[in-house]
Design a protein around this nucleic acid. Structure first.
Lengths: 202, 202
DNA sequence: GTCTATACCGAGATAGAC
DNA sequence: GTCTATCTCGGTATAGAC
């Protein structure tokens, strides 16, 4: 049972307060499983007031999706700037860890992934487009890191293989966030990482 | 938009026909997104008739979940028997491929994974229990294969690391089923597999 | 076991006063 | 912009005839 968490930051514009209240609900109970009355209750307003800010439930949902996608790409950009001048091993490992932390702690991440895997059928096409943008951003980051690692001699394997294997590692460890405890997840991530690194390091 | 696919195997008992009709609907549109009227339409009966076979929507859903879990464990057992006497490399690779095929083609697999990741909150605890059983079955299979591979000298790495990395590989490739085309998925699986094998083969 | 009819509810959405 | 009141629709579920 989800408690009603009032979003109280009174300084924010109403539309933003609504989005922030709706996000965790959509993330946890899905699109069909989240009702406008519940959202309104979390914001602290009445249901019809929502329509002063969003044309429909789908409209609200889509606005949130866009924000989530942008936030993810911002996260990636921060990662690139943060870990400029270290070993390739550390770069890839830190990205894996930070990626996990990001998806673990933020409802943004939960929503992002939930609707990447199981979007409401109506919005499937529109959302796939958004997803591809984020995916490309990630691939670009990886490509740069891996090519640099290849130049430095830290990576032996073929870059395409490395990137695909790394994305698989990200997806796999992400999925496991849902059904392992924090400590068990950490353990599994470590083990999977070691095999991966041994596989590309040569 | 999902067309109405009538389940016509008249020889089956009604309860089974209902489950078979409901499964792909639950798998594709989720628990809340699937209505009893739609299910009834697919079976070719009227909505109230469902209640002669299941006490509630949740009841029907739960019956299906149990079947799905059993089917998955049966699949694993078949795998073990099928690939008894080949190289460890081939055993692990075939399991990866067959696992993918299983989850790709059967609505069973789709449902299994959807509600493993995002179960209806009410059923979370009950379902987690079921999941743990299936997860253990998989781990047992892997443990045997990996220990044998270690004895044969085909595997250099630590068995725990290998198993965790392999499950991560399974999870990652599974997740990618959702958003890559068949050919692209195949390519990515190959690449990820090669890195994995290099990482454990030594 | 299956049907028609219906109860009951909560959903998304709108009208119109303030 | 927010409210109360209300509309319409479709959901789960039940009653009771056949």
């Amino acid at each position: 049972m989800l408690g009603v968490t009032t979003v109280s930051s009174t300084k924010l514009p109403m539309s933003e307060r609504i989005e922030r209240a709706a996000l965790p609900l959509f993330a946890r109970k899905g699109f069909e499983g989240t009702s406008l009355s519940k959202i309104a209750k979390c914001v602290g307003i009445k249901k019809p007031s929502l329509y002063a800010h969003f044309a429909s439930k789908e409209d609200l949902f889509f606005a949130i999706l866009q924000k989530v996608n942008r936030d993810y790409r911002d996260f990636l950009e921060r990662q690139v700037q943060q870990h400029g001048d270290v070993t390739t091993e550390k770069q890839l490992y830190c990205l894996l860890k930070d990626h996990t932390t990001y998806l673990e702690n933020e409802d943004l991440g939960l929503l992002f992934k939930r609707f990447m895997l199981f979007p409401p059928l109506v919005l499937r096409d529109t959302f796939n487009e958004q997803f591809i943008q984020s995916e490309e951003a990630l691939t670009n980051v990886l490509l740069e890191v891996v090519q640099e690692g290849k130049r430095r001699g830290e990576i032996q394997a073929d870059p395409d293989e490395v990137i695909d294997a790394y994305i698989c590692l990200l997806d796999g460890t992400f999925e496991q966030l849902f059904y392992y405890s924090k400590v068990e997840h950490e353990q599994r991530l470590q083990n999977a990482w070691r095999i991966f690194w041994r596989g590309i390091h040569g």
